[in-house]
Nucleic acid binder design. Structure first.
Lengths: 254, 254
DNA sequence: GTAACATACTTGTCTATACAAGTATAGCGG
DNA sequence: CCGCTATACTTGTATAGACAAGTATGTTAC
């Protein structure tokens, strides 16, 4: 147990990041790297207090939020345990598809089909919260898992907020990770639809006409402005979205 | 302001429910009933402390969790505000479809197509975490919004946990609200897929063959046992799923 | 042997206090 | 009129301490 706790020395009380967040990150890392395996018992709150020299409320907040996010399970009177790993791509987490693919042991690659400027039509203008006719940056790319297309990405970006977007090489870095490095999103909106792809989409994703697709649209805000609106299309045969949660009272409330 | 705060008198320090939860519920109710309207400023933490006679940390926890759930927005140094109402059915909230429909001003009705006992095949047994061949309760129902089918529900229920399931009249009460009244779910799993409905499903939902559907599968646990596994099929033309969140650091983490 | 009890340890909640940091505003000096 | 500063108020984080309540285990009484 000592060895486990000792490696917590990453906690830095003078860091700009809050303590509870540093603790969450550390535990998250330990679980994702399988240093702490599924079902394993975590150190108790009091043990963590002693090891990290922070107050119990700070530890408690970190563990409570990790529970709410489904990463650990806690049993009153017993202890805290690493939760079972979810088997599906997360629905609400803002994950980079490249990281998601490589994490599952597959090879990720992507091909940029378009990277240019487009004028906003009525619908795009409304969703990006700009005037009609505003020029926006546009990216169209296909993502592959072991050379099989799994996602078609169509992304609009506000050029005022990300002026250097067109200069990036999105066959190397994904747009998600680039934007995450530039922005700290403060709000997100997700909409999921089932669609029947048109023939061009079928070609790009190399699927038969008649196969339905899952379409996930995400808008991201920073400082009350829409930074980007991305529509991701997944062949339903190759991908599904899911999430497993601990339930809190809000989710049950009528 | 006094009138607003005065009506908080529902807080009961000797109630079994935690104080922060009572506060969350009260605020939730005020927002959902439009007593507090979108964009309106909430009383400050200190005002709530004075009005409710609880400590600021308790108020703060309630407001923080409401923020995380997207019901309110908070601005450092400014105050707390009622968030804009989301325009879509929530993805993760366990909502009753009847409540959702009636809340939008439409008429909900439902028709039970089957309510019986089925033996678990391999797939169902695995998802319900029971032995193959175990008998399970099964419900098949269609939900209508103003007489237009919007959801096909196929639900398996563990009969050991809900022995009186078959005795219910699910044309009056929805299965969701009945199960919620019997159980406090502790964990949920959601999986979203795009599917092409078979002809029987098309008939039940009164859609043209060739229209894709969104399929949301949900498993609910209580005491580490699967209580129910429901598959809900929505015609994509009549429904989409969405959610808008405040982003916390977890969702951004790579 | 078994049931009841005491104990120790766990998580859950709540309080009172403190300080940090972001924002708006009033007032002052130029 | 403009810009600076003091201030008051807001939310965000962290602490130390307390009690409640759930669980497991060992001990005692019968």
């Amino acid at each position: 147990m000592n060895a486990i706790i000792d490696s917590f020395d990453a906690i830095d009380k003078s860091a700009p990041q809050p303590l509870y967040q540093q603790i969450k990150n550390t535990i998250h890392r330990k679980i994702k790297s399988s240093e702490w395996k599924s079902g394993q018992k975590l150190p108790s709150e009091n043990e963590l207090v002693a090891a990290l020299q922070v107050s119990r409320m700070t530890i408690h907040r970190a563990l409570r939020e990790l529970t709410q996010e489904g990463l650990i399970k806690r049993v009153h009177g017993i202890g805290s345990f690493v939760a079972d790993a979810p088997r599906h791509a997360s629905l609400i987490e803002l994950r980079d598809i490249a990281a998601e693919v490589t994490e599952s042991g597959k090879q990720h690659s992507s091909r940029v089909l378009a990277l240019n400027t487009k004028l906003a039509d009525e619908a795009i203008a409304r969703s990006m919260q700009v005037a009609r006719g505003t020029s926006l940056y546009f990216l169209n790319a296909v993502h592959y898992q072991d050379d099989i297309p799994i996602q078609l990405e169509a992304r609009y970006v506000n050029p005022e907020l990300v002026p250097n977007f067109l200069q990036q090489d999105f066959s190397v870095t994904t747009s998600t990770s680039f934007l995450l490095s530039q922005f700290r999103p403060q709000e997100m909106e997700h909409i999921v639809r089932a669609i029947m792809p048109d023939t061009r989409t079928c070609t790009k994703l190399r699927i038969e006409p008649g196969e339905p697709c899952l379409q996930l649209s995400r808008r991201t805000w920073s400082n009350n402005q829409v930074v980007t609106h991305v529509t991701m299309t997944y062949p339903s045969s190759r991908y599904d979205l899911g999430a497993r949660y601990a339930v809190n009272d809000f989710q049950m409330r009528q």
